[in-house]
Design a binder for these strands. Structure first.
Lengths: 187, 187
DNA sequence: ACATAAATGTACCGATCAGTACATGTTATT
DNA sequence: AATAACATGTACTGATCGGTACATTTATGT
């Protein structure tokens, strides 16, 4: 089946792009490491950028599924779910192949405004924000939109620093800051 | 003088790397855009990576000088200086060529642990953290190290999101979160 | 004026870049 | 067994990659 071949390519390319970066990964490298011929790649994707966009869409799906599922596994009360977000982040940071947020990497390599890749990154951030805003609203926050945006700022900062300085303690620092914010919004 | 030529190269390369990225900028592009011959470049820097490291060292110096100077211009009381950090960030985000933190971009393109570029990024974050920790201590925070780390998490997250989603409102959200943290640490 | 050093232009190196052409295999359906 | 669609390997394109060779020009110090 052609669809599963396509998915296999996107899955494998995702790992390689995440590990090595986008510009640093050539199409010939993808051929070597995926075992999928270049001809097949260009049958499914017109350009390298199209392939990158497909990997970002898959990443968005995988990451949000993982994040939301783990939050819901660790707590059922909405306010408690806001708190355990940072425990889920800690799990993520401690994965041995953690290299920061893939969308932050993509936006660093393709920084021009109003381009497909940066817009995809913005869309990912927007979808995550919506999930957190819903939790904040259910938790009875005075300003759920503001609280959610603030918690997302903590999440992004923690992810960046966990990659640059190593994961030790960062998620705990962010968790404590998040606790303060959540409690002062849900008095 | 050779030293000023070298500095001129580093200054111009810094702008181009920041605008377009590291892998995306070839040495021939630097020749074209700086007007400095490739021969001269390779007399001052053995490799492209050496040039990148020099631009990062310059960026560290320029950014910390700017950040610290502006904080001290906007407030003299240490606790107040912690607050106005976020106003300085807002200024930075609203610069028209703002594209996020250069060290975050560098760590995204060169993500391997224990390499010179990632270590330089970590050093930059460490130096900024020291400045904020000193302020937190002078402000009488109960746990100045923790408060400083938390404020730095807010700073990184705000910078990332200001680039991906645009600067509107982000610095204000981070400022309000910072206000909460500072006040609860300096009761 | 002369010597030394710095900076230059140009042409080149082998390797890799994204992307294509084309002929050959493989697989499934009929 | 025949056909059609998919997948393959290989070889190629022109452009660009990081880096070098070398001869020439420019500027400085005495």
């Amino acid at each position: 089946m052609s669809i599963s071949k396509r998915d296999e390519l996107v899955q494998k390319a995702l790992k390689i792009f995440y590990r090595d970066g986008f510009h640093a990964t050539g199409m010939d490298t993808l051929v070597k490491e995926t075992g999928i011929s270049k001809t097949s790649m260009y049958k499914h994707f017109r350009t390298k950028e199209d392939l990158i966009l497909a990997t970002l869409r898959l990443r968005d799906e995988l990451f949000r599924n993982y994040f939301i599922r783990r939050v819901e596994e660790l707590a059922s009360d909405p306010k408690e779910q806001l708190h355990v977000m940072f425990d889920v982040l800690k799990e993520w940071f401690e994965q041995k192949d953690f290299r920061g947020c893939m969308f932050v990497k993509a936006s660093g390599e393709y920084p021009d405004h109003d381009t497909a890749i940066l817009n995809t990154a913005a869309e990912h951030k927007k979808l995550l924000l919506q999930f957190v805003t819903d939790l904040a609203r259910k938790a009875g926050a005075r300003d759920p939109e503001l609280l959610a945006r603030q918690l997302m700022i903590l999440k992004e900062g923690a992810a960046v620093l966990a990659h640059i300085k190593g994961p030790d303690g960062i998620a705990d620092d962010a968790r404590m800051a998040g606790d303060d914010l959540i409690n002062s919004h849900c008095a």
